[in-house]
Design a protein around this nucleic acid. Sequence first.
DNA 1: CCAAAAGTGTTTTAGTTACACCCATGG
DNA 2: CCATGGGTGTAACTAAAACACTTTTGG
Lengths: 244, 244
Amino acid sequence: MDEAAFLESYDPAAYERPSVAVDLILMSVVDGAPAVLLTRRDQHPFTGAWALPGGFVGIGESLDEAAHRILVEKARMSDAYVEQLYTFGAVDRDPRTRIISVAYFALLPADRFTAALKSAPELALAELTVPWPGETGGPVEACNGDGDPLQLAFDHGEMLSLAVRRLRGKLDYSGIAFALLPERFTLRALQDIYEAILDTKLNKPAFRRRMLDRGWLEATGERETGASFRPAELYRYRQAEGEQ
Amino acid sequence: MDEAAFLESYDPAAYERPSVAVDLILMSVVDGAPAVLLTRRDQHPFTGAWALPGGFVGIGESLDEAAHRILVEKARMSDAYVEQLYTFGAVDRDPRTRIISVAYFALLPADRFTAALKSAPELALAELTVPWPGETGGPVEACNGDGDPLQLAFDHGEMLSLAVRRLRGKLDYSGIAFALLPERFTLRALQDIYEAILDTKLNKPAFRRRMLDRGWLEATGERETGASFRPAELYRYRQAEGEQ
DNA sequence: CCAAAAGTGTTTTAGTTACACCCATGG
DNA sequence: CCATGGGTGTAACTAAAACACTTTTGG
């Protein structure tokens, strides 16, 4: 990035440039299963297939800003946990023209996730079926309410797979799970998130202790209401210092 | 990425596009310390500062191809372990013009690393001093042979920090360490790599057993030569199946 | 036989899992 | 008082760490 960049600053048309886009993987855990928001394509290419919401990166905005703008504009929500995932740069990933796409994933609690569906009618919820062990390979599939797999546009299936892998990988050592829960939550709800993402049953006492020993949880003293059995204590996530 | 992309395919000049570059973090462990290859900038901006080797992504090549091309062209080596790290997209990260940079890191055994220095005279080796616990924060510093920190151009310091964090994070569960060793190596050499990257002393018997129990190592039956004491057995890395 | 580092066996410790049980609530 | 899920204590197990030890080479 020396001479070439220097020259280009004086002659911006010297090289043909790819377009740069951001695609958003909006994830949540809904009814005990990982879910993602998709839009149905009504134009060429991949007409009728399902795609992640995305858009081009403006010349005056950073990648992170673009991701947040798309979160607001296309998905009608703000203030989600957003993290850069990977940049997809195959030459033919878009048949129309050269587009490099920076994939971001955003995590939301289920209530805000389903609420967004109402205000953004072009979005649809797709359930993710994750082959186990999805840690290493096997494509993730997005399914509609009947469990039928949806056809995904571009390389968006790859993006989904990578998002699920990353989510799994970070679940244990980061506070990422709390982005999928409301501000107050029960330990059972937290365990449900873990079980949905990892696709395993976890031992209740072991899970409780592990979580409480980490020191990330703060008891609110309040209890769940509306249950016909013993109400569970509500906890709050206390951000650890060295957490990104 | 619907209407906008569709329109743009017919009118490529409609939007001003950022340039896309790839920067390479060429790392190794030399003399028991993590090291990186840098070039000294002789032009504006950051004249005299040190930068990672990099270059623009051609319109007809993928990001991975660009990374490999730069590895060959700028660093005069091929066939390294290369992995995409992160994409840096701040608007002002390059004062000349808008450049988005996809950072890759490449890992090499020390012998090939130092050999490359001879054939590429514009490259210099910098030792990395990693604040512990570097897992969470604190910038990594690149130092010359005298231990004086080097001034880094652009956001390349951030790139280095992230590369070290990623290396540390993946060390334990992936075969990444073997990219830093020649084809045959002793368990002591492997432990040295771990200790250099993690910046800790490790217990020898525990380390041996952990490594051998993983099943990634294959004894060659050969032994080290030239030592004036008991020669160590040479091992080979046997790629695990689900390994990327 | 000595120094130096390779390599092994055994005990200790810590962290996780499994299981059994008690507790609190609505009906 | 019963069903249901919340919450806790204890034992069993497993994996890592610490330590002491034996082995093998060159000189």
